[in-house]
């Protein structure tokens, strides 16, 4: 009970909640006017905003790429090129049959002539008679997640049975996609780290400035019996509050930006050209992870701000003689 009251007291002190009808206003010992407070809040807000964007973008790309990789990895394609003297309808039916018998395959669906032509329509236009063109046939093979398909064995079987058949396991695509996603995420991480370093430096400068401006106050506090730890806590409290304010503003702006982005993208997705983007990027949905990460960043920024200023003050006081 007592411990709880004590902890609550500390929380109130940090938040600046006044307890009881005291005469003292719980006025901070480090005057607000002695710190370049507004400038620091602005810098912290901007840094939090940028860090949140970097983190959000990394999460977004990471999610999208893994969703896409999943989808692509669950499919393979068999292509059958028309060969002189062979019935392509029979060949594609046979290929589908062979594929379905292979362990690891859930289903194989052969595109009919009409469907293949429909696929080409966006490029060649409607109303064209394609029967004279050597249009290859596609068979999409969907895989079961449980058993791994032996792609080489299937490729060999197909080649033996049907000349002109080839199996595309999308590996090249997958690899490129993974590399791209990893590059983007690594870039975001570097930006995130740089922003954080810049912020720590800004806090350090502001703390040094505040200490220079408060040399007299620090001296008086020493004379009346304040320990170094107590004095550095006063600075920490001030800076934590400034960091909290800056972090909240930056995080709020970042959340609004992401909300706006997802709203715009959902409008856009409703248009026909949006559907293609949808196919490319999977569901361009903002997971709650992004928002959780942003809030976490804001909290971390506030704590970091307080911690950095406290450490600097403490070191400065220790070197003082």
């Amino acid at each position: 009970m007592n411990m709880f009251a004590e902890a609550w007291g500390r929380v109130k002190a940090i938040l600046g909640v006044k307890s009881g009808p005291g005469i003292g206003r719980d006025q901070a010992l480090v005057p607000a006017s002695s710190i370049a407070g507004r400038a620091l809040v602005t810098v912290v807000a901007i840094m939090t905003f940028l860090a949140s964007l970097a983190a959000g973008a990394a999460i977004l790309i990471g999610d999208a790429s893994s969703a896409w990789q999943d989808q692509v990895a669950r499919e393979m394609t068999i292509q059958i090129r028309p060969t002189a003297g062979r019935d392509i309808e029979a060949d594609s039916a046979k290929a589908a049959q062979l594929a379905e018998k292979t362990p690891g395959v859930a289903a194989a669906r052969a595109y009919t002539k009409d469907q293949s032509e429909a696929l080409l329509q966006p490029w060649l236009g409607a109303g064209l008679d394609l029967s004279e063109l050597p249009v290859p046939r596609l068979i999409t093979v969907s895989l079961t997640p449980k058993t791994r398909l032996d792609a080489t064995a299937l490729r060999r079987t197909l080649a033996a049975a049907i000349p002109g058949a080839s199996l595309d396991d999308h590996r090249l695509w997958l690899e490129r996609l993974a590399v791209m996603a990893r590059t983007v995420v690594a870039g975001a991480a570097v930006i995130f780290a740089l922003v954080l370093v810049a912020m720590v430096l800004a806090v350090a400068f502001a703390t040094r400035g505040a200490m220079a401006g408060n040399r007299e106050i620090i001296e008086i506090l020493h004379y009346v019996g304040a320990a170094d730890a107590y004095i550095s806590r006063q600075f920490q409290r001030r800076f934590f509050r400034l960091g909290l304010r800056g972090g909240a503003i930056g995080a709020g702006a970042a959340i609004i930006s992401f909300l706006a982005l997802s709203t715009v993208s959902s409008w856009w997705r409703a248009t026909p050209s949006g559907e293609q983007v949808d196919v490319m990027f999977g569901d361009f949905n903002l997971s709650p992870n992004v928002y959780a990460a942003i809030i976490l960043i804001a909290a971390a920024v506030a704590i970091l701000t307080g911690y950095v200023s406290r450490t600097i003050v403490f070191r400065h006081l220790r070197d003082l003689t």
């Binding site: 007291g9 009881g20 005291g22 003292g24 719980d26 506090l221 019996g225 304040a226």
Partner: peptide, 12 residues
């Protein structure tokens, strides 16, 4: 009250 405050005493 400052000397008491820096010793961590409660205002009350």
């Amino acid at each position: 009250a400052l000397p008491l405050r820096v010793r961590g005493k409660e205002e009350a």
